[in-house]
Design a binder for these strands. Structure first.
Lengths: 293, 293
DNA sequence: TTGAAAGCGATACCAG
DNA sequence: CTGGTATCGCTTTCAA
């Protein structure tokens, strides 16, 4: 040991990994970091993984399924011990391909199949309750603003969470006896405006797939000089930090990102040890009150 | 090759790295990803590095010098080919220690020493010009709101960029003949309010170390019912995306984050090949006009 | 062109 | 408890 110190010996983790067959590395496959939701989650995961002695290999897909496949191949070659996967791919082949790798995988945001543990919020339930929450504020007409889910589907992309949220909206609407669901896809100002205007005198709210959409709708309302929440109600999803700086404060669906990251890593580590897939974890959520409803 | 395909052969990058002595991996040592500025930059770096065939090992320090030192040690053990370093450490020993590792390092945000290539915006010049820009809008009194630079210094932290920005402010003030610099440290509402109020009838602007501080000052002004930009002018730094959703639109110092990331990776790759430290790159910046001045 | 052997830097087993 | 050796999977060199 004395000689080792004198020669300034440093163990070579590469050789160690090769010999021991484990890299002590976790791969994170994520969309992007521009979105604060993803960035926060990666931030939390890194911290917890590091505490547990694991390193992070980060790969971003920017929504490109090809990049995801390539990224998975890289992670396989690099022999990461586990993967946190925000997937944009979806087909049966992909699921069996992932399964064949024999690498523990935990999915988040989009589910791939029942074969992989999923950690997240029960988006369907959250949106169903959000509809009731909005109705409770006296709105008689509730629109849903989704991303361009149909075209994403056509491109063979994974739209699990978008679909869940939309289904939750539809279910919520049925349960409160409103039978004219209106789903908008993408932020086309014309389309959104005319949908809002066709209200036949009923107070209208718009439930958005995410806070970014909600913020854009708010911008639109300001431009059109519509009063929020008087003329138009707005609700977002994710409760991003940024909302607190925007007036009026947009109501949103929030959850504990730190806890989510914690569970993600815990379950992944569990899977890595026991070699058996763990059960899903559904997080709690809560509505953050604001001035937009 | 046919047999290889049949047996579904996949090269083992770990063994390859060991044999070849290169991991094709770049380490990114960064503060956090909560800050959109850092998150964007990491996002850009990942994309460009991947295009060049390099992988990302991400380590976050959350401003803790101890975590940075540990992180560097990990990256050394893992034999990354190069490091992008957002440093919070600063002392002569640290610089020579890093030098002794023999790993190509490019620094950003905070400079460590002349021995390491630095890529970034000339913050001193930017702030000096910002003072003139503000003065040009008719303000006769300009305050500077910094982070808690003094206490960070005492803790032995690297405050290079904070100091540069502050020095730029001081220099700009001298050059336009204003001789009462007022530097505030940290967002103490009391202190900021009273500094703003002690204006002796002169129109007052507050130049902030970053957009987050600028946004908070705006919040404060709203709470105090001060008119922006009538009573108080505000200017930020970084020109974060978020500003476009906040009214009034805060003026800021912007620059091309994508280009910054591109240069970072390019220079790092250059250093990795030639083995000689490259020269610094100073980015252009521009003032984004808004409604807060 | 092909094949065999030595190394990269650790771990792990087995005899002494 | 110590010291030698095979192994991990690949690159590289050298000989055939």
């Amino acid at each position: 040991m004395k000689v080792a110190r004198e020669l300034n010996y440093k163990p070579n983790k590469i050789a160690q990994s090769l010999a021991i067959g484990s890299t002590k590395t976790i791969g994170i496959m994520c969309f992007d970091l521009e979105n604060n939701y993803f960035a926060s989650l990666v931030d939390v995961i890194e911290g917890i993984a590091k505490n547990e002695g694991y390193f992070i290999n980060l790969i971003l897909t920017h929504g490109d399924p090809k990049k995801e496949r390539e990224g998975i191949a890289y992670l396989e070659e690099r022999h990461v011990d586990g993967i946190v996967l925000f997937s944009v791919c979806k087909d049966a082949d992909y699921s069996t391909y992932l399964q064949s790798l024999g690498i523990p995988i935990v999915t988040i945001y989009n589910r791939i199949s029942e074969d992989f543990t999923f950690i997240g919020v029960d988006a369907k339930k959250a949106m169903r309750d959000a509809v009731k929450y909005i109705a409770g504020k006296g709105y008689e007409r509730i629109l849903f603003l989704n991303a361009k889910i149909t075209s994403k589907k056509k491109q063979g992309m994974n739209v699990y969470t978008l679909q869940e949220r939309q289904d939750g909206y539809l279910q919520g609407l049925r349960e409160i006896g409103l039978h004219d669901p209106i789903v908008l896809e993408g932020l086309d100002e014309e389309a959104v405006s005319s949908a809002i205007c066709a209200n036949s005198g009923r107070r209208t709210a718009i439930l958005c797939i995410s806070d970014m959409y909600a913020v854009s709708v708010l911008e639109l309302c300001k431009k059109k000089h519509w009063d929020v929440p008087g003329d138009v109600g707005i609700m977002g999803y994710d409760n991003m930090d940024m909302l607190q700086y925007i007036a009026p404060r947009i109501c949103s669906v929030g959850y504990d990102v730190h806890l989510l990251g914690k569970q993600l890593v815990t379950v992944l580590l569990e899977t890595m040890c026991s070699d058996a897939p763990s059960s899903d974890h559904m997080m709690d959520y809560c509505f953050t009150d604001g001035e937009s409803l």
